[in-house]
């Protein structure tokens, strides 16, 4: 059995410095809190695409940190022409106006085409398949009404500190918006 070593003085110089530094550290963090308090907010922001700025470059499909992008195509039906020949649905020169795979523009066949009445068809996006490539958006914008557009689907998005797509978006279309209104939908006033 070893004898215990002698006790050192209760408060050494170092301990004193440390205590001082700790107080200083806590004060600093308190100060930081004070400065940040007005800037901090429970109303966190999320990333969203301004459809008016999107240039449909295809990066939304390739740059998201998720394998299947959190960006999806959204459809404002009130803008839609319900076209028989939807340029968002069909390749530029389809063999026929039917749902055959080779006629579909969407690389993942994420758009559902349903007959409503002559000559109108409804187009709906299957979010689970859409990869946000904006191909249909380009087709719809170019010839049609622009009722298809991209949005960050908030249930998929991880809300990265810096959106990996927004960083390289050529249209500078990404911005942070308040979490309680997390979409920039196209809407009409009629």
């Amino acid at each position: 059995m070893n004898p215990p070593p002698q006790k050192t003085s209760p408060l050494s110089r170092r301990q004193f410095f440390r205590a001082g530094a700790r107080v200083a550290g806590m004060t600093g963090m308190g100060l930081l809190c004070g400065i940040l308090a007005p800037r901090a907010s429970a109303r966190t922001t999320v990333w969203q695409i301004d459809p008016a700025k999107c240039l449909r470059c295809g990066r939304c499909a390739t740059e998201c940190v998720l394998t299947q992008s959190a960006v999806k195509c959204f459809h404002t039906h009130a803008f839609c022409g319900y076209c028989q020949l939807c340029t968002g649905y069909f390749v530029p020169e389809p063999n026929g106006l039917n749902t055959a795979a080779e006629n579909q523009l969407c690389p993942t066949a994420a758009i559902r085409r349903t007959y409503i009445e002559d000559p109108y068809y409804e187009y709906a996006i299957d979010e689970t398949l859409c990869i946000g490539c904006a191909k249909c958006v380009e087709g719809c914008n170019r010839f049609g009404n622009g009722s298809l557009y991209l949005q960050v689907s908030q249930d998929h998005c991880l809300n990265c500190n810096e959106c990996a797509i927004g960083r390289v978006c050529p249209g500078d279309a990404f911005r942070r918006i308040p979490i309680d209104h997390p979409y920039l939908l196209k809407t009409t006033s009629h």
Binding site: G58, R59, T62, P92, C133, A134, K135, E138, G139, R142
Partner: peptide, 9 residues
């Protein structure tokens, strides 16, 4: 180029 380009060719 955009791999998902809408090609009018």
């Amino acid at each position: 180029p955009n791999p998902f380009a809408y090609e009018m060719g």
